[in-house]
């Protein structure tokens, strides 16, 4: 078949060089991805720390002052930050897995801060007649619960977007935490999820947002 018109050559050095360049670019891209995830994790820790400090100072203020400080401004701001960190943790969980040690540690601190925020909001409701509806959303991150939890979470996020007075606190039921064990015991939580609205457990299986909306004050 070969007519001998042209001698074909293979430049092995070029091929090797191309593989080296490809490997460098590929691993450099992976490294950048790793770096950006590190930045996300660092930011999560930082925001978490800032929020923790803000809440701590709010708590201290309320204890120091004789009259309860009925100023919800700081709580609203921390509430925003909390939901942002919540999303960051979900993102990290997706990237690193639900059993990643660092993600679990982050989640534990997040859970404690959420509870603290929840208690401060409750104080505000009690002492200042502030109009808030608090929803505690307990969820399981097990695979079989994914579909159900996604739906409930979507409905609750919608209610938070629609009503400024709605505050949602999400808790991972599978997290090894004393405070979660306490909630599980108090509200008798098992299964894929549990919704506690203003201290009352919603027993019915929520399918539409109206089914929760009717309980909001």
């Amino acid at each position: 078949m070969l007519n001998g018109k042209m001698k074909r050559e293979i430049n092995w050095t070029k091929i090797l060089l191309a593989f080296l360049i490809a490997s460098f670019l590929f691993f450099f891209g992976l490294f950048l991805g790793y770096l950006s995830n590190q930045i996300i994790e660092k930011n999560s820790n930082q925001i978490l720390e800032e929020t923790k400090n803000k809440l701590f100072s709010l708590e201290s203020l309320s204890l120091l002052q004789e009259d309860y400080p009925c100023n919800s401004y700081m709580l609203d701001i921390t509430s925003e930050k909390l939901s942002f960190i919540g999303e960051l943790i979900t993102l990290l969980e997706k990237k690193k897995g639900v059993n990643d040690r660092e993600v679990l540690d982050l989640k534990k601190v997040y859970t404690l801060i959420e509870v603290r925020h929840f208690m401060l909001i409750n104080d505000l409701k009690k002492n200042c007649q502030a109009n808030y509806s608090t929803i505690l959303f307990f969820y399981s991150n097990k695979e079989e619960c994914k579909e159900d939890v996604t739906k409930k979470s979507f409905i609750l996020t919608f209610l938070r977007n629609k009503y400024d007075f709605v505050r949602i606190y999400s808790f991972d039921l599978n997290l090894d935490s004393e405070i979660l064990s306490f909630f599980k015991q108090v509200y008798n939580l098992d299964g894929c999820y549990g919704i506690i609205l203003d201290g009352k457990k919603i027993e019915q299986d929520i399918q539409k947002y109206e089914e929760i909306e009717k309980y909001l004050n």
Binding site: K14, F19, I21, A22, L25, F26, G29
Partner: peptide, 15 residues
């Protein structure tokens, strides 16, 4: 595909 894509990119540029 990304890795092979990088290889093709490098090989074409060198060629």
């Amino acid at each position: 595909s990304i890795y092979i894509g990088f290889f093709a990119f490098a090989f074409y540029l060198l060629s």
